[in-house]
């Protein structure tokens, strides 16, 4: 187990050395984030919200692991490795809990990595097929996304609806669905599938954006209806969700197709895109999302002209 952890640290170190600028920015952001968490740790209820977000991030990391087969091959119980890794992520927060005498939070950070490490990987079920078509989704990437994250999205939608009576929270939860949606835009389809649409690049991109946006609206419809009813003084805040979601989807679709090459994985800079995605739930980053959406959208339309030139006449 130690040799695998050492291997991962070596890889991380190599990445750090090879692209100093991007990783320096990420390093500074992590340090700033930790400083912010330290600053907020003693304040109720922020400390609970932060721990909830951290546990959620760890679960997302666990559910998206691609090395499970490798770990199973190398060790009898890979869960030990997962626990060690997740504990390392939690370590700063465990230290903060001790400094501020927050023993309940300490317990959460100590137990959650163990629980998460044992959560089996959700395997999408064929039985979900019918439910998915209820959403009227036709794009294969969105069908794939819904199958993979059906239960997580359902859970987020339910939490979002049940917290409608609290200001803003449910809107943030709803917007986190867009972050999960970014999974759909990480693989390039074969050219045959793109050509099937028989439309020019402008219409192709617009169709993709509209379909993603419509899916978001369908998933968030109960919250979008209930929020203004429970929050009459701040009803207009409900408009933020679809607007920000639309901008983010424009950015995600643009990021995918601006560097489209048939049969490859998306190659747009994941660090820059990460900042753009943060704008979906952290308002301070929203200007980056807007700028990226505009830039990526026009580049994507230009790039696809190469492949859809027959329909661009």
């Amino acid at each position: 187990m130690l040799s695998i952890i050492e291997l991962k640290f070596r890889r991380f170190y190599r990445d750090l050395i090879n692209s100093p600028i991007e990783y320096s920015i990420v390093g500074i952001l992590i340090m700033s984030g930790l400083a912010f968490v330290y600053n907020q740790f003693d304040k109720y209820p922020n400390t609970y919200i932060i721990s909830g977000i951290i546990i959620y991030i760890i679960y997302m990391i666990h559910s998206q692991r691609r090395d499970i087969a490798f770990c199973r091959l190398m060790m009898k119980s890979p869960q030990k490795l997962f626990i060690a890794e997740y504990m390392l992520i939690c370590l700063p927060f465990i230290i903060f809990s001790l400094i501020f005498n927050k023993y309940q939070i300490l317990l959460i950070y100590s137990i959650s990595p163990i629980v998460i490490a044992f959560i089996p990987r959700f395997s999408p079920s064929i039985f979900l097929q019918r439910h998915i078509y209820l959403f009227g989704v036709k794009s294969p990437e969105l069908v794939s996304f819904l199958r993979k994250y059906y239960w997580l999205i359902l859970l987020l939608s339910i939490v979002s609806v049940t917290l409608c009576f609290i200001r803003v929270i449910s809107i943030f939860i709803l917007l986190s669905i867009v972050i999960i949606m970014s999974y759909s835009y990480t693989e390039y389809e074969p050219l045959n599938i793109i050509l099937l649409e028989e439309v020019n690049s402008n219409r192709f991109i617009n169709n993709k954006i509209n379909e993603g946006f419509l899916l978001f609206v369908k998933l968030g419809l109960p919250t979008l209806i209930l929020y203004p009813i429970f929050n009459r003084d701040t009803w207009y805040l409900v408009l933020i969700a679809p607007i920000v979601a639309y901008i983010s989807i424009v950015m995600l679709v643009g990021a995918k197709y601006m560097s489209y090459k048939p049969n490859n994985r998306a190659t747009s800079s994941s660090v820059i895109l990460g900042f753009g995605l943060m704008g979906t739930i952290i308002p301070i980053f929203l200007p980056i999302t807007i700028v990226l959406a505009l830039l990526y959208n026009s580049s994507a339309k230009e790039n696809l002209k190469k492949y859809l030139h027959v329909y661009n006449k």
Binding site: I126, V143, S144, R147, K148, L191, N192, N263
Partner: peptide, 15 residues
Amino acid sequence: IAYLEASNFFYSNIT
């Protein structure tokens, strides 16, 4: 043209 490439890509979780 219809072109069958040597390596084929499919989305995950698609039947």
